[in-house]
Simulated assay, not measured.
Amino acid sequence: MTINYTQCLRCDRPLTSTKSMATGYGPTCARKIRNSAVDLTDYQAHQVTSARELIEDGAIIPLRSTVFLTVSTDGTELHRTAPTGCNCKAGLKGSRCYHQLAARMLLAA
Rank of each mutant, 00 (worst) to 15 (best):
A90E: 14
G94N: 05
T84Y: 08
C86H: 06
A82E: 01
T73Y: 05
H79T: 00
L69Q: 14
A90V: 12
P83K: 08
V71I: 14
T73D: 13
T81K: 04
P83M: 08
E77G: 01
T70G: 13
K93S: 09
T81M: 06
A90D: 15
T70I: 08
L92Q: 15
S72G: 05
A82F: 01
R80P: 03
T84C: 07
T76I: 02
S72K: 00
P83I: 07
L92I: 11
A82Q: 07
E77Y: 12
G75H: 08
T81W: 06
L78G: 09
D74Y: 01
G94W: 02
G91E: 01
G94Q: 08
P83G: 06
G94A: 09
G91I: 03
G94T: 06
T81Q: 12
T73Q: 14
H79C: 02
V71F: 00
K93I: 03
C86A: 10
T76G: 00
G85R: 15
L92R: 14
H79L: 00
V71Q: 14
T66Y: 01
C86P: 08
F68E: 00
A82H: 03
C86K: 04
G91C: 12
G75N: 07
L78S: 11
G85F: 05
K89C: 02
T70S: 14
T66G: 00
L69D: 15
H79G: 02
V67T: 09
T76Y: 01
G75D: 09
T84D: 13
G94Y: 03
V71C: 13
K89H: 02
H79Y: 15
K89Q: 12
G85T: 11
A90W: 12
S72T: 02
E77A: 06
P83S: 12
T84W: 13
V67A: 06
G75T: 09
S95L: 09
V67R: 00
T70W: 07
G85Q: 15
K89I: 15
N87T: 11
A90L: 15
T73M: 08
G94V: 06
S95K: 00
T76N: 02
S95D: 07
N87Q: 09
L69G: 05
T84L: 11
K89M: 09
T73H: 15
E77W: 07
G91T: 02
L78C: 10
E77H: 11
F68W: 08
S95R: 00
G91R: 10
V71R: 14
A82R: 11
G85K: 13
L69T: 06
L78W: 14
N87S: 07
G94I: 13
T81N: 08
C88H: 11
A82T: 11
V67N: 02
N87E: 03
T73I: 13
T70C: 15
L69R: 09
R80C: 07
T76R: 02
R80Y: 11
V71T: 14
K93N: 04
T73V: 10
T81P: 05
K89E: 14
